[in-house]
Design a protein around this nucleic acid. Structure first.
Length: 318
DNA sequence: TGCTCGCTCCGCGATGTTAC
DNA sequence: GTAACATCGCGGAGCGAGCA
């Protein structure tokens, strides 16, 4: 194969195909993602392997498995591809023309409703021609979305450590027990887990971060989880507590307005909830994404009831 | 300088192969 | 049997050489 020809015509596309296969974990899914056919993906990977004289994927029948060589290439290629793809916007930015392009964000419903709006409002005022694309998703699906490059970054919490993701916590919300003012628990000086377990617990959506954490705390303390009433949204949690159907543990930004309820700090048992910025490790952020990140980390906007986890640091753009 | 022809590359659908 | 990758054959597009 003529190497110079390979570089000129194919190398960029082939590398992009290769990285998509790594992210998708399948030739077929990569073909769908790239809007091409599976044979085309297969042939591109073969040509790349032939050119580099290495095996990038072990073929185990219908399954593929990335080799150490493939992993090493991916680690090198992905940042390079991101850089090249961001080049047009970066060029415009260098000329002081950060006025166009897309900014794609993803987050859980709570973050999108209670954290992002003031930041989006300020950002769209400053950069009115940048298209803001906001996707709502479940907290546990955020890593998959970010790793597949479907968004610039996410706003939310991470369930667990992930070597491929970079998490920068920004906001901290203390855990609270909320109940009506006339609830029997309001009479107690000190409220324990066992006291709470005697009442119905209004729970956030099943398998959400808060749902998972609350159950974990009862399990870790060897206390049988109280009877639960699980509702589909954080707004519904507050409504059900107001109606006297039970009490609730609040661990998120979603319940920052609870003046008509009694709120008791429960940080003795339940962890605080932090929200932050989640991005793929090594990803080259577009200029508009970096501007938005800079705004999030600044102290230009103060969320009600939110406590900054650390002194904001404005990253250098150089 | 512009047109034509033939070579090469690339992608597609169909089909084969393999592992579960 | 099913799902996913590999291979085959075909057609379209791009490019360069040759010619008027």
């Amino acid at each position: 194969m003529d190497k110079s020809l390979f570089f000129q015509r194919q190398f960029f596309n082939t590398l992009r195909t290769f990285c998509t296969v790594v992210v998708e974990g399948s030739f077929s899914n990569a073909a769908l993602e790239l809007k091409t056919s599976q044979p085309a993906v297969s042939l591109q990977i073969q040509s790349l392997e032939k050119y580099l004289d290495v095996i990038l994927f072990e073929r185990k029948g219908p399954k593929i498995c990335i080799t150490p060589d493939g992993r090493a290439l991916y680690e090198m290629a992905m940042p390079a591809l991101s850089t090249i793809e961001a080049l047009p916007d970066q060029f415009l930015s260098s000329r002081g023309e950060l006025q166009h392009g897309d900014l794609t964000l993803v987050g859980g419903e709570t973050a999108l409703l209670n954290i992002l709006p003031p930041y989006l409002k300020l950002f769209s005022t400053r950069y009115p021609n940048i298209n803001l694309i906001i996707h709502s998703t479940l907290t546990q699906t955020i890593p998959e979305i970010i790793l597949s490059n479907k968004a610039d970054f996410a706003i939310g919490s991470l369930f667990e450590e992930n070597d491929e993701l970079l998490y920068s916590p920004i906001f901290k919300f203390p855990s609270l027990l909320i109940m009506p003012h006339n609830h029997p628990l309001a009479e107690l000086e000190t409220i324990t887990l066992r006291d709470i377990a005697a009442y119905t617990l209004i729970m956030p959506p099943e398998y959400s971060y808060s749902w998972w954490s609350i159950n974990q705390v009862f399990k870790n303390n060897n206390i049988e989880c109280p009877s639960q009433l699980t509702v589909s949204s954080s707004e519904a949690v507050k409504r059900y507590v107001r109606e006297g159907l039970g009490v609730a543990i609040i661990m998120s930004a979603g319940e920052i307005n609870y003046n008509d309820l009694l709120a008791v700090p429960m940080s003795r048992y339940f962890p605080h909830r932090d929200y932050g910025l989640i991005q793929r490790r090594g990803k080259f952020l577009s200029p508009q994404a970096r501007k938005f990140k800079e705004l999030l980390l600044s102290n230009e906007i103060q969320l009600p009831k939110a406590k900054l986890l650390h002194t904001p640091v404005v990253p250098s753009l150089s």
